[in-house]
């Protein structure tokens, strides 16, 4: 029942990750479409974050193949790359479940660090920059403009000069996404972006993610428990349980998949209808 994707930005094939005796991810294969929002869902401990850490190079998988594909046909085997090269060369960026911002630096500075690599080249690896050559000044101006663009999208314009650590939780989440977008990724991996957000913030997040998919032409892969976000904006859902894939398809298909409802929601049969109804309501809310 694998979902058909003709233009993937990421393919994961036979991925396994073992920690000592625990098989956290077990022979997982899936794809994420270039213009899709793909959600990776599953109960706690299903191995979702482990999959993320494998994709973004923080763990080296025990087995399997993770490939990032660019439009021009270039392929990058992520499991063989150093973690910092994955955002730099393969253009796969990520955020973290427990937000990791540069708390003592301002919002603008955070976004400038996101553009480190191109700026580094523009400053001739610091040598040109320190002499004040013109090329760097221009590049810096462009970088500030780009940062402003993403600040505007994330609604952080009024916060530009505030320390990231001073922002409220919801804004920190959005800043982390904006910062990841400053690396100009082809695929953005978000680890529970809606966790801890109130409904209004969650709604804003949905808009931001849709903008990233539609306007920035970046594929999104997200882990999420918030069904409002998952059902509302995903094009494609992969369901994990105990490290194994148990379902893969459109939100429609997933919602009607009895094994997902049973395994993932872990609710007795009589409550399934109730949950379905809830999902329906959310769906309606999102489409209206």
């Amino acid at each position: 029942m694998a979902h058909v994707i003709d233009n993937p930005v990421l393919t994961v094939e036979h991925l396994s990750m073992r920690f000592g005796g625990l098989l956290a991810v077990d022979d997982l294969s899936f794809m994420a479409g270039r213009q899709d929002i793909t959600a990776l869902i599953g109960p706690n401990g299903a191995g979702k974050t482990t999959v993320f850490n494998c994709i973004t190079g923080f763990y080296k998988p025990t087995e399997g193949c993770i490939t990032a594909l660019h439009e021009n046909g270039e392929k990058f085997l992520l499991e063989r790359m150093d973690d910092f090269k994955i955002p730099k060369i393969a253009k796969v960026a990520r955020t973290f479940q427990n937000i990791r911002l540069f708390g003592g630096m301002t919002v603008l500075e955070n976004l400038m660090v996101g553009q480190h690599n191109p700026l580094m080249i523009a400053s001739n690896y610091t040598f040109g920059g320190i002499l004040g050559l013109g090329g760097y000044k221009r590049a810096e101006k462009e970088a500030i403009e780009f940062a402003k663009y993403w600040m505007a999208q994330a609604g952080l314009m009024h916060r530009a000069d505030d320390a990231a650590g001073d922002l409220p939780y919801g804004e920190q989440r959005k800043l982390e996404i904006a910062r990841a977008m400053c690396t100009k990724p082809k695929l953005l991996c978000l680890d529970e972006p809606a966790a801890g957000l109130n409904p209004r913030e969650s709604e804003e997040l949905n808009k931001l993610l849709l903008f990233i998919r539609n306007e920035a032409a970046t594929g999104v892969l997200l882990i999420e428990h918030d069904m409002n976000v998952v059902m509302g904006i995903s094009d494609h859902i992969v369901v994990l349980d105990y490290g194994k894939k148990i379902a893969d398809g459109t939100p429609e298909e997933i919602r009607n998949d009895p094994s997902v409802i049973a395994a993932y929601l872990g609710v007795p049969d009589e409550e399934v209808e109730e949950v379905e109804q809830e999902i329906d309501e959310i769906e309606e809310g999102a489409s209206s």
Binding site: F84, L101, H116
Partner: peptide, 19 residues
Amino acid sequence: RAWEALREDEIACRSLGLN
């Protein structure tokens, strides 16, 4: 800025492509 970012959070630095 990379130095200061490193002081703030090394893992975040790597996730942004900083060597």
